[in-house]
């Protein structure tokens, strides 16, 4: 029997100001979810994430949440003001919004130290956020999300702008968190590096084109409907590899 969803979107239309970005979306997240949302720029990936977060209200349809469900969000690294005067520990601590006093309690300081240690950046608490590498920055925001003890973790392009090694680390870290019972939903552009390794994919282009495991979803037909371009799907060492079939000479021609 499938677990009851923590967040469920039913027949949702949503968008900004006077234009709809998503139409007729049915989508559910539970504690077993480990889902990648893929699609071209402007397809509605971030809009879908915002609906799950609750920061965007649907124009029509319903968004149902389990009572008291805890959701944390990790933003895109590119959207962060890295020059903001704040240390790693201060950044993690700020999401404990229940405490009104400016300074951290002894318990809070211990919790922050624990979560930083768990994510492998325990010695960086007093560093300014600008002094971190891409992978460390991602871990800091994961720490800020995890200190709220979420049941669902939503990530916007968690591997955008990081190197292959960091991408690998982030993916494994997310897999570990998923094993601990946290439902995970992320957006990504990275079909080969990220999406093909996730157990569940959602292809989005103003609507949900397809959802399921990678070998069911990553097909030339679904990719063409999603990205508007013909792509080949190959098997390489047991992995799916997506290749742009327009070929190298197409632009010149």
């Amino acid at each position: 029997m499938a677990p009851s969803p923590l967040i469920a979107l039913k027949g949702v239309d949503a968008g900004y100001r006077h234009s709809l970005v998503l139409h007729g979306v049915d989508f559910a997240v539970d504690h077993r979810s480990f889902t990648g949302i893929v699609g071209p720029s402007g397809a509605g990936k971030t809009t879908l994430l915002r609906l799950l977060l609750g920061s965007l209200k649907p124009a029509s349809g319903t968004v149902e949440r389990a009572p008291g469900v805890a959701v944390s969000y990790v933003p895109q690294l590119e959207t962060v003001n890295w020059n903001f005067p704040i240390t790693v520990a201060e950044c993690v601590q700020m999401s404990r919004t229940g405490r009104r006093l400016p300074w951290a309690s002894r318990t809070e300081r211990a919790e922050v130290a624990d979560v930083l240690e768990r994510l492998g950046i325990g010695d960086l608490g007093q560093r300014h956020i600008r002094e971190l590498s891409g992978g460390q920055q991602q871990r800091m925001f994961l720490a800020r999300a995890l200190i709220r003890q979420p049941q669902v973790l939503l990530l916007d392009e968690p591997t955008s702008g990081v190197d292959i090694s960091t991408r690998h680390d982030v993916l494994h870290l997310l897999a570990d968190l998923h094993d601990e019972g946290i439902g995970i939903v992320l957006t990504t552009h990275d079909l080969n590096g990220m999406a093909a390794h996730l157990p569940d994919l959602v292809c989005v282009n103003e609507r949900i084109v397809a959802q399921g495991p990678p070998d069911a979803v990553i097909t030339p037909d679904v990719l063409e409907q999603t990205f508007g371009a013909r792509m080949e799907v190959l098997q390489h060492l047991g992995m799916l590899v997506v290749v742009d079939s327009s070929g190298p000479g197409r632009l010149a021609g």
Binding site: G15, Y16, S19, L20, A59, S60
Partner: peptide, 8 residues
């Protein structure tokens, strides 16, 4: 900083 949603 937050886009305004379409009102239902």
């Amino acid at each position: 900083n937050v886009k305004e949603a379409i009102r239902p």
